[in-house]
Amino acid sequence: MSIRHGLLALLEPGARYGSRLRTEFEKRTGGTWPLNVGQVYTTLGRLERDGLVVQDGVDDADRVLYALTDAGRAELRAWFARPVERASPPRDELAIKLAMAVGAPGVDVREVVGVQRRHVAEALHDYVRQRAEALARTHEHPEETARLLVLEQLVFHAEAESRWLDICEARLLRLNRAGE
């Protein structure tokens, strides 16, 4: 998720100060993507520079409030309207690790796959547990829906990684047999 656009979305209902934005961002994403408050204020500074937010006074505790500008609202609507680009996928450390392990002397690639498989199984178990908890709370706390969506995405990614590891292991076994 774009931190820049996430902060714009959190400002849509009204002016907020930086640490409140941080708390709301982490709550909305189920704590999956923690932010440090410095990152929030750096991003707010850039948004202000770009004319998407303005400082809008201070609250009772003398904290600077930030509010969306009309340009910020337009940028937010445009972000919601366009798809997330898939043309240049992000670098995946696991894919790079396995690609490098294949040609590395003394590395048992199947062991690398096994270690990752155990790790993803533990993560998947944890995500499924958290998803069940969030699902149980959505009836009384509709704001849990945002967290639930993030957790479901994490479950699906972990399941996909597990399937991909199965394919990698099968391919490595075939290549090993062919080389014997």
Rank of each mutant, 00 (worst) to 15 (best):
L135R: 08
R147K: 13
L172Y: 05
R137Y: 02
L151S: 00
D166I: 01
R131V: 03
Y127F: 15
E143T: 08
Q130V: 10
R171I: 13
Q153E: 10
R163G: 09
A178Q: 12
R129W: 11
G179V: 12
Q130C: 10
D126T: 11
S162W: 11
E144A: 06
R163D: 09
D166G: 00
E161S: 08
A160P: 04
I167F: 14
A132E: 15
C168D: 15
H157I: 04
A146C: 05
A134D: 01
S162A: 15
L173K: 09
Y127Q: 05
E152I: 08
A134G: 02
R147A: 05
R137P: 00
N176M: 06
I167L: 15
T138E: 08
L165A: 14
A132H: 05
A136P: 00
Y127K: 02
E143G: 04
D166Q: 00
E140Y: 03
L172M: 07
R137W: 05
A170E: 13
A121W: 01
E144L: 03
I167N: 15
A160H: 07
R147M: 02
Y127D: 04
H139M: 09
G179H: 14
Q153W: 07
A132N: 10
H125N: 10
V155K: 01
E152R: 14
T145M: 11
E159M: 11
Q153A: 15
T138R: 10
L165W: 14
T145R: 11
L124M: 02
A146I: 03
L148F: 02
A146T: 14
R131D: 00
E133W: 05
L165T: 12
R129T: 15
V128Q: 12
H157Y: 04
G179R: 15
E143V: 09
G179P: 02
L148R: 07
A178H: 11
L173A: 13
L165D: 11
R163C: 11
T145C: 02
L151A: 00
A136H: 01
E133L: 08
T138A: 04
A123Q: 15
E169A: 13
S162F: 07
A123M: 14
P142T: 06
E143A: 13
V128F: 04
A121T: 12
L175R: 06
T145E: 13
L173R: 14
L175T: 06
V155D: 00
Q130P: 04
H157L: 09
R163H: 11
E152S: 14
H125P: 03
A136C: 00
Y127G: 00
E169K: 09
L175D: 03
A158S: 02
L172I: 09
V150E: 15
Q153H: 13
E159T: 03
E140T: 08
R131Y: 01
V120A: 01
L172C: 04
C168A: 15
H157C: 03
P142Q: 02
R171Y: 10
R131K: 06
E169T: 09
R147V: 04
P142E: 06
R129C: 07
C168S: 12
R163Y: 13
R137G: 00
A123H: 06
A136N: 02
R174D: 12
A170R: 09
